[in-house]
């Protein structure tokens, strides 16, 4: 990274009280304070948020898409984790 390019930050915004923060994009900023201010200007010009998180992109660790099939495979054959797996008699209410 050369001197003129500020670090990259990922931006997460809570759109409404009660909802979770959602990734909306990224931006460059010299530090966290500036990242939050820039995120406000870039991503909430139309009241899209009530709270902003920023995380420097280099701190994000991700699962490897090339291993996605094997990585998520253990969940694929466990249908009994879903309520629809169970048959409830018609006469039983509220279940």
């Amino acid at each position: 990274m050369n001197q003129s390019e500020w670090p990259l930050w990922e931006v997460f915004i809570r759109s409404k009280q009660g909802l979770d923060h959602k990734h909306v994009g990224s931006l460059h900023a010299a530090d966290a304070t500036m990242a939050v201010q820039n995120a406000r200007d870039v991503y909430t010009r139309r009241l899209e948020g009530v709270s902003i998180w920023v995380v420097e992109s280099k701190h994000i660790h991700a699962s490897n898409p090339d291993d996605a099939d094997a990585f998520f495979d253990p969940a694929a054959d466990k249908v009994y984790r879903h309520p629809t797996f169970y048959e409830v008699p018609d006469s039983i209410k509220h279940m």
Binding site: Q3, S4, W6, A30, D31, M34
Partner: peptide
């Protein structure tokens, strides 16, 4: 705008 980018970097380094 170069001086603004440099100043922001300097400020961030100082604060850190």
């Amino acid at each position: 705008g170069a001086w603004v980018r440099e100043a922001a970097n300097a400020h961030a380094a100082k604060r850190a």
